[in-house]
Simulated scan of single mutants.
Amino acid sequence: MTSNIALSLGTHTISVPHGSSVIDQRYHVAGSGPVCVVHPGGPGIGWDYLRMPDLERCMTMVYVEPVGTGVSGRLADPRGYNLGLYTHFLHAIVEHLDLPEVMVLGHSHGGFVAQRYALDHPDRVASLLLYDTSPVTGAVFWSAAVENMEKYARRHVADHPEVATYVAGLTGETAPSDDEGATEVLRRISPAYFHDYWGHEAAFAAGRQALRMYAAPAWGEGPAFDVREELPALSMPTLVLVGDDDFICGVRWARMIHEAVPGSQLAVLDGTGHLGHIESPVQFAGAVLAFLDAVTVGGS
């Protein structure tokens, strides 16, 4: 791996053709070992929150900084921030790495991207890690998320009055049009993404402050996400990871993926919300490394 300059440690920028323009795409390399390309959630959440130091000790983690976020390029028309766009840029990174195939890990909305990418480019995906994500969105998905957030607010509003604003923050009723405002909303509602943020605030505060949201990707337009009928076509080793108290992409949706993807493994992290790599890092890393060991022993 050390001879491949595209995988040298640090930050890289590639120029990716898109329509009639060329857009900068950044990615960040850390660690050593088998290569895992990591796509963060959102759309529009900065990559930094997804650093996984426990995995960097034995894997080369390639963190995508999606277009529309950080220092990666921007679209002239924000309506273009859709699943097809993110899949296109993910493929550009995989191609640039110049490897026959890579492991792909997608978190939350990044899991949508990872599923679409694995379906479109199965020959480039050695194995697939779908972390706190879903095979479908739409009315049922969002109504369940809002209901869970409402329950969270009712449980905590007496001790933390600010949770009364969480539902509006989730549904976009108070969505700001600038990056600073979007980041403020995300950080404000982020305790709901943990199983027990308030009981471990000192430990999780840094993770909360690492969250950053960029406003424009939320304006993207595209067809509804639903790959349920396509998932049985996946044949690469697949791990579905989920926190047992993830209010938005919980066990219901993880089981849906697990039951659809032949031979997939399901790992449910106990006492964990939507950010298991922060909240339960030992459980999280253990599940990933056990999967990686099994894949290696199996000869994939």
Rank of each mutant, 00 (worst) to 15 (best):
G299K: 02
D226Q: 03
A168T: 02
I5W: 12
Q115C: 06
G10I: 04
L85D: 07
E95H: 02
D123K: 09
D178K: 08
E95F: 01
P176V: 00
V163W: 10
M61K: 07
S190H: 05
L90W: 11
A139M: 12
E201T: 06
H12C: 03
Q115S: 10
A267G: 14
I5D: 15
T13G: 10
L292W: 05
V62E: 08
A294F: 06
L231P: 03
A76S: 12
S32W: 12
S280V: 02
Y197F: 15
V67S: 03
D159E: 15
A158G: 13
A153C: 13
D293K: 13
T13C: 14
A287T: 01
P217K: 04
N82R: 02
G31C: 11
G250I: 02
G263W: 10
F247C: 02
S134A: 11
G70V: 08
R79C: 06
F89A: 08
L130H: 02
V29K: 02
H258M: 00
L50S: 15
Q209P: 00
A6S: 13
D48S: 12
D244R: 00
G111F: 10
D54C: 06
R155T: 14
V268K: 04
D293I: 07
G181S: 01
T133M: 05
G111L: 04
A168S: 09
T171M: 06
E201D: 08
P53C: 05
H39P: 00
I5R: 15
A203L: 10
T174S: 14
R154F: 10
Q265I: 04
G273M: 02
V251E: 14
D132M: 02
T183C: 11
G276W: 00
D54Y: 12
A216Y: 01
A126V: 03
Y86D: 09
E95D: 14
G199P: 08
L289E: 11
W142D: 04
R79S: 14
S20R: 15
V62L: 11
N4G: 07
L239K: 03
P232L: 05
A260L: 08
D244G: 02
P135I: 04
T137V: 15
G42K: 01
E201Q: 11
S280N: 14
I278W: 11
G46N: 14
D196C: 09
A158K: 14
V185M: 09
G10W: 11
G138K: 03
P34E: 12
I257E: 01
A233K: 10
G276I: 00
D77Y: 01
A203F: 05
V240N: 00
P53S: 09
G80R: 02
G276T: 02
S21C: 04
E162T: 03
F194D: 00
Y152I: 12
V167F: 11
C36K: 05
P217D: 07
V136W: 00
L83K: 07
L186I: 09
H109N: 10
Y81H: 08
E184A: 15
R116Q: 13
D98E: 14
V288A: 04
V240Q: 00
V125A: 02
E150R: 09
R252I: 14
R154K: 13
I14M: 11
L75K: 08
R79T: 14
G138V: 05
I5F: 14
